[in-house]
Nucleic acid binder design. Structure first.
Length: 1311
RNA sequence: AGGGCUAUAGCUCAGUUGGUUAGAGCGCUACACUGAUAAUGUAGAGGUCUCCAGUUCAAAUCUGGAUAGCCCUACCA
C-alpha cells in the first residue's frame, strides 16, 4: 500500500525525515557510498557561534547545501567539513561585557589567562542553537569533526603559512611579510589602535564642535613662486583650513588638486588689518568673501569689521602650477628641524583627493596624522617631521606622544593634551581652561598667521571603549605584501566562475586592481599570535613556522638560560596522540567543564556505580583497565575500557523518561561512530545481579573489537584520522602528565602563554615576540590548509581537497573571506582557492529594510521553519529571486510556495496513492511498459519531464538555482498537475487495471519520482518523503533485484540524467496546439455563456500548414473531451471561408527595408486575402514604397486567420478556433445528463460516501430531465456508480438546482 | 570619496542576439469547473518599463548621464 495523507503538513514531514536521516545515518552514507577519487570539494566558511543564527544564515546555508547535495546525487563524493570561527573582536567584546571589564582591566582585574579562558568558553556559546538550526533546516555538514580556529593545530597551520610568506621574496628581494608603518585610528585614552570595524560600531561617529582654523602660510619667493608675485615685497600667503589645529606644528606640506583652479586675492588680514595676498581655490572664494565687497577700497577697513574688502589679483592658477612652491614653516619646533626638512619640506604638493567642497581647496598636510597626508607626502618625497629618531632617521618620533600629549620639545604647547577630552574633568571645568586647538589658533591670530577661526560642527570618530576622540596616528604594523601579487591575483581571478559574474569582475576584480598591502596586525589578545620574535633593536628576528621549530628554538633558549623550561614540549605529538586528542576529547571548549563534572561525579558515585567500580578497578576483570567518568567527545561515560573500546553505562530511573532515552540513543550513536561499544545496565541490575553484569562485560570485552580497531579507520568519512590510526590507542589527555593539559589547559599557543617565550638570536641576544595578533581574516583564509592541519598532517587529504570546486557566502564577504582565500592561495600556492563561488545577497524584511534588532523586523528562523517547514522556506528563498539579489523576505511568499508547489505535488501524490491502492497497483520495475505502448498524453508528459531534466541540469551546472526551481515549478503546476493529471483523471478511476491504466500509473509514478529527485537538493525533506512513499511498497523487491529504486533515501540515489531519446519535441508541439485550442474554445464558451457540460457539435480549425492536420489529429481526443465537443473539422483556403490578415515580420523585413519599414508595415496590414494568397502561392510579391521596389517572401509576413464569417471565433497568434454553437435536442439532453451526474456526485461527496460505494438514485420526474434520463440512463448509472436509477413523482431527498429555473429532487442512498 | 548591485503591474519576479500587443504568479473583480479541494480554468481591471539624452527603420533591451535604495571599502583637510 502507498501511504495516503489527509493534509499536507510540512513540519511533520521534516520531523519524520530528520529522524530517519539520523537513525539511518543518511548523510554519512550519502558521502561514503561515493568513490573517493571522484570528489567535489566544498569549503565551509565558518560561522561564529557566539551570535545566534538568523534567517540570512538559512539562506546562505541553503545555497551551500543544495549544490553539495546536487553533486552528491550526481555521484560525486562531497565531504563537508564544518568549521567554527572562534577568534576576533566580537568575542572579545562579549567576554568583556560578561566579565564586566574593559580592555584596560585585562592583566589587572582579570589575568590574560582568565580572559583567554573566558573567550574559549564564550565562542561556542550558541553552538547548540547552531547545531539545532543546522539540523532543522536540513543543512548537511559534518559537525562532529569541524575545524576550530582556536585550536593549536589550526594556529600552527597559520604560522606555517605566515612563514611561507615571510620566506617568500619579491623579485626586488622584499619579503612578503614585513613590518611597516601606517596611519591608523588610535585611541590615546585606551592606548590602542582601532580597526575600521571598531570605528564602524554604532555611536562611534559623533557630532562634535571643534575649533577650525584657516591658517595663512607665507610663500617664499623663489624661482618657482616668482610668477605669483606682483611686487617683490608682497605678503603672499596660501590659505589652508583645518579642523585639527593641533596638527599644524606637524605641517610639512600643502596639498592642492592638480586640476583645481586657484585664485590670488588681494585683501587685508582680518585680525591685524595688514595688507595680504592670499591664494585659495577659485570655487572657494565666495565662501570667504562677499561679492559686494569686491573692489572696495582696502583702506576703508578697520580690524573687527564684518566685511572684508578684496579684489581678485590673479585668476586661473592651476594646482599643478603651484606644486613646488615653498613656504615658511607655520609653527616651528626647533628640536624637530633637520636640514633635510628645510630643503624638501614646507612646499606645495599635489594630490587627487583634494576637493573644493569645503575649506580652501588647499589641504594642510601633516603626514603622521592622516592617511591621505601620509600617502601624499610619501609620494612627493616630503620628509616626516618629528623628534629625531637615532635608530631610524627617516622615521622621527611624532610631535604628539602615545598619551595624546605634545612632546616637551614643542614650544609653548609641550606637555599639553591635543584634545580637551583627554584632560580630566577637573581640569576642563576650570573657567580658565582653553583647549589646545584654541590656544594654537590664538597664537596664529596673534602672529598674523590666521585668516579665520571659527567653531565647526562635524562628525568625528570616537573610541567605543573610552568614548573619547580618536587620533589618526602612526603605528607599526605587520603587512602582507599583497600588492606584489596583484597581477597574479587578477589573472587567477579570471579563471573563477563568479555568481553573479559582476561581483568577480566588478567588486572583486577592481578591488584587486587597486590592491593595498594587507595590514595583519591587531593589538589584541584573543587571536592567532604573530609568530615573529625580534631582538629589542629589531636587527635580528625569526619567523616561526611550526610548533616543533619553536620548541627547538625554546630548547636553545633554555640552554642559554633565557627560559627556565620548555612548556611546549608536550605539544609535539606523535600522530597517535593527535588522533587520540581529536577523537576522544572532542570540543576543547567544553573539555574543562566535562572534566569538572567527571571529577565531581567520581566523588559522589551512585550506589550501583560504587559497587561496580569495586569490581572493575585495578584491572580486576581479565586485566583490562577501566576508567571512571571519563570524557569522550562531548560526553562523560560512566566506565570506559579504552583498549577494548567499551563503554559501560549504569543508568538511574530517570533514563526511563522518553526524552532521556532519545538522548541516550543519540549518545550511543555518537559513541558507536567513534568505534565504541556501549552497554547499559540499570541500577537494579547492578545491585541485584552483579554476577550477570560482570559476565556481560566480560563477554563484550573478549568479543571481536568494534569497527575502529578493525582497521577501517574512523567510521565517519569526515573524521579526523591523523596519519596512522591503527595500533594501540594511547591514554587520553586527561591521563597525561603535568604540562600536557591540552587542549584547554594552561599550555596553548595563545597569549599570554606565547608571550613568555623568549628565543635566542643567532648572536646570542634575547628575542621577544612581536605582541601583535593577526587579522582574524587570515584565520579564515587559511582554512583550506589549516582545517587539515596541513602540511603537518593529511597531506594526501589536502591534495584531494584543494582547491574547492565550490564555495558560497554572503556578498559582504567579497573582500573578506573570498579575498583572503584568494590572496593566500595565490601567494603561497600560486593557485585559486575556489573555482566557483556564489555570493548571496542580503535578506531584507518585507519592505526592503535591513533586518535589525532595533527595528524589530528580525525573522526568527526557528519559528519560520517550525511553522512552514524547512523545504518551503528553502524553496522560497531560492526560487523567489536569484540568491545574489537581495531577498525581500515575505512570509506570504513561503505560503505561496507551500500551496502552489508542495501542495500541488502533495495532491498529485495523494491522488496517485489513492487510486493505486484501490487498484492494487504497485510499481514494478521489471514490467515497465515501453513508451510506445503508452498514450500520446503519457509520452507527452514524459517528454516534458525529460525536457525539464535537461533544463534543470543545465541550470544547476551553471549554479543558476533559481532557474532550476522555476522550471520545476512550471512543470509541476502547469504540465503535470493541470494537464496530465487533469486529463488522465478518468483513466485512473474508471474500470479495471488494464494496460492503459497501468501506463497511466507508471507514467505518473515516473514523473513524481524524477521530480522528487530534481527537487531533492533544494527541498531535501519533502523530496525524501515523496521518494520513500513512492518506493516503500516495492523496496524489498527493488533491493533484492538491485534495481534503481533500491535506495533507502532519495539522497542515496543517482540523479536522473538528461535523455534526449525520451524527449519528443514534435509531440510537445502537438500538445501545445491542443492546450491552446482548448483554451481558445473555452474562451468562446465563456463569452457565449455555454457551460462546458453542455456538449457542442464541432469546432473548425483553419489549417496552418501541411503538418497541422496530422499534428492536431494526434491529440484530437484530448481536445474533444476537454472542451466537450463532438468533432473537429479542418478547413483550408480552398473552402473560401477564411478571411486572412497579415502582419509584417519586422525581424526579416527590418534589415531589408530600413527606413521604409514603417510604411511597409502599414501596407502589409492592409493586404487583402488575394494579396496574401498570391504571395503564398507564388512565393513572392513585389511592393513599391517611396519609389523603392522590394520583393516580399512568405517569411516576411505573419499570416493569421482573422475571421470565419458566421462562426464564433477566437484566435491567438496564428491559431484560430471557430465553434459551432448550434444546439440540438440530443446535445441538450446529454448536457442535462452530465448536469445530473454532477449533482449526484456532489451529493455523494457531501454525504461522505466512499469512492467505491454503490448507490441507488431516485430522481424527481421532472419535464426538464426526462429526455436526458431516457437517453443517458446507462451513462448516468455508470458515472455515479448507481445500481439503480429510478424516476419517482416525489423524492425524499432535497431539491437540487439544475439551472437558474429548474430544480429537481434527488435522493442518493448506498445500495 | 571610490567600487558594485538593483530599479518592469498593488506585491514578488521573467523578459533570449534590439523587432511591433512587455509577460507569469500572487492579490483584486466576475464567471465557470471539480470524486486531486489549503486546489483549478476562463475573462477583466491593473504599465510613462525610475528619469534625461544619444545610437537605430525600430530601445524595457545598446551607449552616456542623472536620481533613488542597498552593499562593500575608505574616511577627509
Amino acid at each position: 500500500m502507498y501511504r495516503e495523507f489527509k493534509h499536507l503538513h510540512l513540519p511533520s514531514i521534516d520531523a519524520e525525515i530528520r529522524q530517519f536521516w539520523e537513525d539511518e545515518r543518511i548523510f554519512e552514507k550519502s558521502v561514503e557510498q561515493r568513490p573517493t577519487d571522484k570528489s567535489y570539494v566544498f569549503y565551509e566558511g565558518p560561522p561564529s557561534a557566539n551570535g545566534k543564527p538568523g534567517i540570512h544564515h538559512v539562506m546562505a546555508r541553503t545555497v551551500k547545501d543544495l549544490f553539495c547535495r546536487y553533486n552528491t546525487l550526481k555521484g560525486y563524493r562531497v565531504e563537508r567539513k564544518g568549521g567554527w570561527d572562534t577568534h576576533g573582536l566580537p568575542i572579545e567584546l562579549q567576554v568583556e561585557k560578561e566579565l564586566g571589564i574593559t580592555k584596560e582591566d585585562i592583566g589587572k582585574k582579570v589575568t590574560v589567562d582568565e580572559y583567554n579562558q573566558a573567550c574559549r568558553s564564550t565562542v561556542m556559546r550558541y553552538k547548540d542553537l547552531w547545531d539545532d538550526i543546522t539540523r532543522r533546516m536540513g543543512y548537511w555538514v559534518d559537525l562532529d569533526n569541524p575545524y576550530i580556529t582556536f585550536k593549536n593545530e589550526y594556529i600552527e597551520s597559520c604560522w606555517w603559512l605566515l612563514q611561507q610568506l615571510y620566506n617568500k621574496k619579491t623579485p626586488a628581494g622584499e619579503s612578503y611579510l614585513y613590518k611597516g608603518f601606517t596611519i591608523q585610528p588610535y585611541s590615546p585614552a585606551a592606548g590602542t589602535g582601532l580597526s575600521s570595524h571598531e570605528l564602524n560600531m554604532p555611536g562611534c561617529y559623533k557630532e562634535v564642535t571643534d575649533f577650525s582654523t584657516v591658517a595663512m602660510f607665507k610663500v617664499r619667493r623663489n624661482a618657482v613662486s616668482a610668477p605669483l608675485f606682483q611686487k617683490d615685497d608682497e605678503d603672499l600667503r596660501i590659505l589652508a583650513w583645518t579642523t585639527t589645529p593641533w596638527t599644524l606644528p606637524s605641517n610639512v606640506a600643502l596639498t592642492v588638486g592638480p586640476q583645481i583652479e586657484y585664485t590670488k586675492v588681494k585683501t587685508l588680514s582680518p585680525y591685524t588689518g595688514a595688507p595680504v595676498s592670499v591664494i585659495l581655490a577659485k570655487d572657494r572664494v565666495s565662501a570667504y568673501f562677499n561679492p559686494e565687497d569686491e573692489n572696495q577700497f582696502l583702506e576703508g577697513y578697520s580690524v573687527g569689521d564684518k566685511r572684508l574688502p578684496y579684489n581678485i589679483a590673479q585668476k586661473g592658477i592651476k594646482g599643478a602650477d603651484l606644486a613646488g612652491v615653498q613656504y615658511e614653516q607655520l609653527l616651528p619646533t626647533p628640536a624637530a628641524s633637520t636640514p633635510e626638512l628645510e630643503a624638501n619640506g614646507f612646499r606645495v604638493i599635489t594630490g587627487d583627493f583634494v576637493t573644493t567642497e569645503d575649506g580652501t581647496g588647499v589641504v594642510h598636510t601633516a603626514p603622521y596624522f592622516g592617511a591621505d597626508d601620509f600617502r601624499a607626502s610619501k609620494a612627493a618625497g616630503i620628509p616626516f617631521i618629528g623628534i629625531p629618531n637615532p635608530k631610524n632617521p627617516d622615521l622621527p618620533f611624532p610631535l604628539v606622544d602615545k598619551q595624546g600629549k605634545f612632546v616637551e620639545e614643542v614650544p609653548e604647547f609641550g606637555g599639553r593634551y591635543v584634545k580637551a577630552e583627554y584632560y580630566s574633568k577637573e581640569v576642563t571645568s576650570d573657567r580658565e581652561f582653553k583647549p589646545t586647538d584654541l590656544l594654537i589658533s590664538l597664537r596664529l591670530k596673534e602672529d598674523n598667521k590666521a585668516f579665520k577661526i571659527e567653531k565647526y560642527k562635524h562628525n568625528y570618530p570616537h573610541c567605543w571603549r573610552t568614548d573619547k576622540p580618536v587620533l589618526y596616528y602612526p603605528l607599526d604594523s605587520w603587512f602582507i605584501r599583497a600588492s606584489a601579487a596583484k597581477e597574479r591575483m587578477s589573472e587567477l581571478n579570471k579563471t573563477i566562475n563568479w555568481k553573479p559574474a559582476s561581483t568577480g569582475t566588478g567588486r572583486f576584480g577592481q578591488w584587486l586592481d587597486n590592491l593595498q598591502d594587507w595590514n595583519l596586525s591587531r593589538s589584541r589578545y584573543w587571536g592567532v599570535p604573530l609568530p615573529i620574535w625580534r631582538t629589542e633593536d629589531g636587527e635580528e628576528e625569526i619567523c616561526i613556522g611550526s610548533v616543533e621549530e619553536m620548541s627547538l628554538e625554546i630548547d636553545k633558549a633554555v640552554e642559554a638560560g633565557l627560559m627556565a623550561e620548555n612548556p611546549y614540549k608536550s605539544l609535539i605529538k606523535s600522530p597517535e596522540e593527535t588522533f587520540t586528542q581529536y577523537v576522544f576529547t572532542g570540543d576543547p571548549a567544553i573539555w574543562d567543564t566535562l572534566k569538572r563534572y567527571g571529577r565531581d561525579h567520581r566523588k559522589n558515585p551512585t550506589e550501583a556505580e560504587a559497587l561496580l567500580w569495586e569490581t572493575l578497578r585495578n584491572r580486576q576483570v581479565d586485566g583490562y583497565k577501566f576508567r571512571r567518568q571519563h570524557s569522550i567527545g562531548s560526553f562523560i561515560a560512566d566506565f570506559v575500557c579504552i583498549a577494548q573500546k567499551l563503554v559501560v553505562e549504569v543508568d538511574g530511573d530517570y533514563h526511563n523518561a522518553a526524552e532521556q532515552q532519545d538522548f541516550d540513543k543519540a549518545r550511543t550513536f555518537y559513541l558507536n561512530n567513534l568505534g565504541f561499544t556501549v552497554i547499559r545496565f540499570k541500577n537494579e541490575e547492578v545491585l541485584k545481579g552483579l554476577g550477570n553484569v560482570l559476565g556481560e562485560i566480560r563477554r563484550v570485552l573478549t568479543s571481536p573489537p568494534g569497527p575502529l580497531s578493525d582497521g577501517e579507520g574512523v567510521t565517519s568519512p569526515l573524521a579526523y584520522t591523523g596519519k596512522d590510526t591503527k595500533g594501540e590507542v594511547t591514554p587520553s589527555p586527561s591521563e597525561r602528565g603535568p604540562g600536557g593539559e591540552v587542549p584547554g589547559g594552561e599550555v596553548d599557543l595563545h597569549r599570554p602563554f606565547i608571550d613568555d617565550v623568549i628565543l635566542l638570536s643567532p648572536t646570542g641576544r634575547p628575542m621577544r615576540r612581536e605582541l601583535d595578533l593577526i587579522d582574524v581574516w587570515f584565520d579564515s583564509g587559511s582554512m583550506p590548509y589549516a582545517q587539515w592541519h596541513y602540511p603537518f598532517e593529511n597531506q594526501e587529504v589536502f591534495r584531494n581537497n584543494f582547491p574547492a570546486n565550490f564555495i558560497a557566502e554572503g556578498v559582504d564577504q567579497t573582500r573578506g573571506w573570498f579575498y583572503t582565500l584568494h590572496a593566500i592561495a595565490t601567494m603561497v600556492f600560486d593557485s585559486v582557492a575556489f573555482k566557483n563561488v556564489v555570493s548571496n545577497g542580503l535578506v531584507l524584511d518585507k519592505e526592503g529594510n535591513k533586518m535589525s534588532k532595533s527595528k524589530g523586523n528580525v525573522v526568527d528562523p526557528f519559528e519560520t521553519i517550525a511553522e512552514f517547514g524547512a523545504d518551503a522556506t528553502r524553496w522560497y528563498m531560492m526560487a523567489n529571486a536569484n540568491p545574489w539579489d537581495n531577498l525581500k523576505f515575505d512570509i506570504g511568499g513561503i505560503l505561496e510556495v507551500r500551496n502552489k508547489l508542495f501542495g500541488t505535488l502533495f495532491n498529485t501524490y495523494n491522488f496517485f496513492a489513492l487510486y493505486a491502492n484501490l487498484d492494487g497497483f504497485k510499481m514494478d520495475e521489471s514490467k515497465v511498459l515501453p513508451y510506445d505502448k503508452r498514450t500520446e498524453l503519457d509520452r507527452w508528459v514524459i517528454s516534458k519531464l525529460y525536457s525539464l531534466v535537461a533544463e534543470y541540469h543545465e541550470a544547476m551546472n551553471d549554479y543558476e538555482v533559481t532557474r532550476a526551481c522555476r522550471a520545476i515549478e512550471e512543470f509541476v503546476d502547469l504540465h503535470l498537475s493541470n494537464w496530465f493529471v487533469r486529463l488522465s483523471r478518468r483513466r485512473f478511476w474508471k474500470g479495471e487495471l488494464n494496460e492503459d491504466k497501468t501506463a497511466a500509473y507508471q507514467t505518473l509514478f515516473e514523473c513524481l519520482m524524477v521530480t522528487g529527485q530534481l527537487m531533492a537538493s533544494v527541498a531535501p525533506f519533502f523530496a525524501d518523503w515523496l521518494y520513500r512513499n513512492l518506493t516503500e511498497p516495492i523496496k524489498g523487491a527493488a533491493k533484492a533485484n538491485n534495481t534503481p529504486l533500491r535506495h533507502d533515501s532519495v539522497h542515496l540515489s543517482d540523479l536522473t540524467l538528461p535523455d534526449p531519446s525520451k524527449v519528443d519535441k514534435d509531440l510537445e508541439k502537438r500538445m501545445d496546439y491542443a492546450q491552446r485550442i482548448c483554451s481558445l474554445a473555452l474562451s468562446i464558451r465563456k463569452k457565449e455563456k455555454l457551460r462546458v457540460r453542455l456538449p457542442l457539435q464541432k469546432i473548425l480549425l483553419p489549417v496552418l500548414d501541411e503538418a497541422f492536420i496530422a499534428e492536431v489529429d494526434g491529440v484530437k481526443d484530448l481536445i474533444l473531451s476537454e472542451i466537450n465537443v463532438k468533432q473537429i473539422e479542418f478547413i483550408t483556403d480552398a473552402s473560401g471561408l477564411l478571411k486572412k490578415g497579415a502582419k509584417a515580420n519586422f525581424k526579416t523585413l527590418g534589415a531589408k527595408l530600413g527606413k521604409d519599414m514603417k510604411d511597409a508595415a502599414a501596407l502589409i496590414a492592409n493586404f487583402s486575402n488575394d494579396d496574401i494568397n498570391t504571395l503564398e502561392q507564388s512565393g513572392w510579391l513585389k511592393v513599391l514604397i517611396h519609389g523603392n521596389e522590394y520583393t516580399l517572401t512568405p517569411e516576411d509576413l505573419i499570416v493569421s486567420t482573422e475571421d470565419l464569417p458566421g462562426w464564433k471565433v477566437a484566435s491567438e497568434g496564428a491559431l484560430t478556433v471557430a465553434l459551432d454553437v448550434t444546439m440540438t435536442p440530443d446535445l441538450q439532453a446529454e448536457g442535462t445528463a452530465r448536469d445530473l451526474v454532477n449533482r449526484i456526485q456532489n451529493i455523494r461527496k457531501e454525504k461522505d460516501f466512499n469512492v467505491t460505494d454503490r448507490v441507488t438514485v431516485t430522481l424527481e420526474r421532472h419535464q426538464a430531465i426526462l429526455a436526458a434520463v431516457e437517453k443517458f440512463h446507462d451513462y448516468i448509472k455508470a458515472e455515479v456508480l448507481a445500481t439503480d436509477l429510478v424516476l419517482a413523482d416525489t423524492v425524499a431527498g432535497e431539491k437540487v438546482e439544475l439551472d437558474d429555473v429548474v430544480s429537481v429532487g434527488i435522493e442518493v442512498l448506498i445500495s
